[in-house]
């Protein structure tokens, strides 16, 4: 890739995956699909922002709580100084990604349990949130909050980065192996995303995670890859293939699972 092309790729990827106003180009969806192997790198960047945001929130809230505790009223400082930053960080990550992936999760929830595929696709396209959609989204995001909450102070920063990297890697996996529901916009993305150089994404993911988590990174990559395969199967059953909603839902579920995974390992 030439220098100009690389800059364009990064700009388009940021425009595709976040709400950061980088000034996207017209064909940013295509560029993002072509450069999907760089998704973990953008995940690393998003994770870094999330990690720093968490540390900032944690610092501020602990001091505020300490002040309240000392001078006003006795409150559970330990609990709140971890729980509030966890909720705030997740909210930050959801906003930073423009709620795009979250929306996919809601649509997947909306569609689950509906009789035939046509109705499932229709409800996923409609601008509605059913109780099932809300339930799935709240459950998954609650898991992510729980994951951040249970992480210890030494691992939390790296774990947030790793979870974003692994979530993006799962998106690479599902896009690489997935078949579209129909030949439309989604198939343009998926066909463009099918490229053997996507293997680079797995090495990139490992390299980003290694300084924080060491060899645990390889387990996270395996987990993320399995999730990508599983979500492809779910997509096939629910929608008859992989849609944009499925790719988005994979990111959200990926983040939650990896956070819980790292929290679990660090507690054990």
């Amino acid at each position: 890739m030439s220098k100009m092309k690389t800059i364009k790729a990064f700009r388009d990827l940021l425009a595709f995956l976040t709400i950061i106003p980088v000034g996207k180009t017209d064909d940013f969806v295509i560029t993002s699909a072509e450069a999907i192997f760089l998704f973990p790198l953008i995940g690393g960047f998003i994770g870094l922002m999330g990690g720093l945001y968490f540390l900032g929130c944690n610092f501020l809230i602990s001091h505020i709580l300490e002040f309240i505790n000392k001078s006003i009223i006795s409150i559970p400082t330990d609990f709140l100084s971890k729980f509030l930053p966890a909720v705030m960080t997740l909210a930050f990550l959801l906003v930073l990604t423009g709620l795009q992936h979250f929306d996919g999760l809601v649509d997947l929830g909306n569609a689950i349990g509906i009789g035939n595929m046509k109705d499932r696709r229709a409800v996923a396209h409609a601008w509605v949130v059913t109780y099932k959609g809300a339930l799935l989204a709240i459950f998954i995001e609650f898991l992510a909050v729980l994951g951040i909450f249970f992480l210890d102070a030494q691992t939390v920063f790296g774990a947030i980065i790793a979870s974003e990297v692994a979530a993006k890697l799962a998106m690479v996996t599902i896009s690489w192996i997935g078949k579209p529901t129909h030949t439309g916009l989604g198939s343009v993305f998926l066909e463009t995303a099918k490229n053997n150089r996507n293997i680079i994404a797995y090495f990139l993911a490992f390299l980003i995670m290694f300084p924080f988590l060491g060899l645990m990174g390889s387990w996270i990559i395996i987990t993320s890859t399995i999730l990508g395969f599983l979500m492809e199967k779910v997509g096939k059953i629910v929608f008859g293939g992989v849609s944009g909603d499925m790719i988005g839902a994979t990111n959200e579920i990926g983040r939650a699972i990896i956070l819980i995974f790292i929290a679990g390992v660090s507690i054990l």
């Binding site: 180009t25 017209d26 064909d27 940013f28 969806v29 295509i30 439309g184 916009l185 343009v188």
Partner: peptide, 11 residues
């Protein structure tokens, strides 16, 4: 009809 965003996303 085609959703506007589908066309716009492809430029």
């Amino acid at each position: 009809f085609v959703p506007l965003e589908s066309r716009e996303l492809l430029g």
